[in-house]
């Protein structure tokens, strides 16, 4: 797949939604694609040096639960942290890579990571909070790459 290009826009910052951009980005790179991921809004969480990603069942009735928990109880303090740690445990047991590991594999494979400058400013994030090698740019820069991409996804 030499010469092919994959452009991804990553907009979500939860533990579950962190997987698709990094899985697809690293795999495409392994297949020979040139890959760029443009992180915007909550997707910027995925560029932080210290990722603190959580998963929640609120608003997501499809999330499998070991036992049924009423929605109001799911909103109680501590529930989100508990669900996150249960999810992480399950992932580890099943041999699913951590988000950190997949991100490192993307970096090693020269996957381009672009942070949306507008949302970095909007949320008062500092480049000091972000991993090294991130570029800061806007929509026009995304199209410079995506305009020639074979595949473009919005996640």
């Amino acid at each position: 797949m030499e010469g092919k290009k994959l452009a991804i826009i990553a907009t979500k910052g939860t533990l579950d939604w962190a997987y698709p951009p990094f899985i697809l980005g690293s795999t495409a790179a392994a297949l020979g694609y040139e890959v760029q991921i443009f992180f915007t809004f909550y997707g910027l969480e995925l560029l932080k040096k210290k990722m603190d990603l959580k998963v929640t069942s609120l608003g997501n009735p499809a999330m499998p639960m070991p036992m049924p928990v009423p929605v109001l109880m799911q909103a109680l303090p501590g529930m989100q942290s508990m669900m996150t740690s249960m999810m992480k445990k399950k992932m580890k047991a099943k041999g699913v890579a951590s988000v950190e590991e997949l991100r490192e594999l993307c970096q090693e494979a020269d996957v381009g990571m672009i942070a949306c400058q507008m949302t970095v400013d909007l949320f008062d994030y500092s480049p000091d909070d972000m991993i090294d090698g991130v570029e800061y740019a806007g929509a026009a820069a995304f199209f410079e790459f995506a305009g020639n991409a074979d595949i473009c996804m919005y996640i």
Binding site: I23, S26, T27, A30, K94, G95, A97, L105
Partner: peptide, 13 residues
């Protein structure tokens, strides 16, 4: 062994 998608492919690469 024990690794799940996409790790076997990435490690093989």
């Amino acid at each position: 062994s024990g690794l799940n998608c996409p790790l076997p492919i990435l490690k093989a690469k």
